[in-house]
Design a protein around this nucleic acid. Structure first.
Lengths: 175, 175
DNA sequence: ACCTGAACACCGTTCAAGT
DNA sequence: ACCTGAACACCGTTCAAGT
């Protein structure tokens, strides 16, 4: 009983793309909390209920933002040399430049069923490569980078902490 | 102009303690999202507005939960041998046993002005000790442990991932 | 001193109705 | 095919009023 439609119901209409773009703008400029359906609708000159003709619910919007973020980090990591120091620096730079998107993409479960399966692997690939294909090592490196970024973004380190030095400890141990 | 009251306004009345206990119970049993002022009030047989006679706002309740969580991890880390492997295992165990409290205490900025200054240092001390006093190393170890736990709690690792092995990579590199 | 109901400005979401 | 207003069940919070 094939319908010819994608199983996810993720039709790619022009309006849907506009909604996504507006959402990215709001999150980037005003943070995660500013992402409300009413605020997104306002940005497009319409009312919140109208969004539900293009999206099933807010979670679908968030899933789309997660997919966007993952693709964006992947591009960033692919654009630097493959050594651990470069990958680590690029990871941190991307997160500090896109704090709200980073939080959205990492601070909650990944909506795997609503996201293109490839983007997750694509974002992970440079890290796995930097770990010479050792998956356990790659997971540890990813977690360490995520932890450093997450704590920095949440202001959890004391102001006098030398975060470059903390990153250097990680890079030196695994290079 | 001393008033004889603590500067924070953190009076320790009996009712306040009951509210905290109720909040801990709700968060532990039903998760972070279940923590609403109305739900807490219901648990104590009263209405939400009454809570504001004992707490300035919801953030003060969350700060109290963060303080509780930090003290609780500190106790857990102090109760095992001081080597990195033991500390790491205790950190992970505590987080997996208290996922919602962990999220509350780590997934948002610490309300430092509303929390007893000592508890943060107390929770950090065992990790600093395991890093032989090297603060950069300690911050990296804390971040790595936090990252591993955070990603595990959010279901970000694939189901077949061997997380014991990932933790072992960290412990082996820094022991 | 402690608690209440009513109210306000918000949420996400549904639905009948309009073009 | 697309958008709307009204409505519903929620939030955190304020405030005048009750005991």
């Amino acid at each position: 009983m094939s319908t010819g439609l994608p199983a996810t119901g993720t039709r790619r209409t022009a309006r849907r793309k506009e909604i996504l773009t507006a959402a990215i703008g709001i999150v980037s400029a005003e943070g995660c909390d500013a992402l409300t359906m009413r605020r997104v609708a306002e940005e497009l000159g319409m009312r919140a209920p109208s969004l539900y003709k293009h999206l099933r619910d807010k979670d679908e919007l968030i899933a789309a933002l997660q997919e966007h973020a993952l693709t964006s980090v992947a591009v960033a990591l692919e654009s630097v040399p493959g050594d651990l120091a470069s990958i680590a620096a690029a990871y941190r730079s991307w997160a500090l430049a896109n704090p709200a998107l980073y939080e959205l993409a990492s601070g909650r479960p990944l909506a795997r069923d609503r996201i293109d399966a490839d983007v997750e692997a694509r974002a992970a690939a440079p890290i796995v490569a930097a770990a010479s294909g050792d998956e356990d090592k790659a997971r540890m490196l990813w977690a360490a980078a995520h932890g450093l970024v997450d704590l920095e973004l949440h202001g959890r380190f004391p102001p006098e902490a030398d975060l470059d030095a903390a990153w250097a400890v990680l890079v030196r141990a695994f290079s």
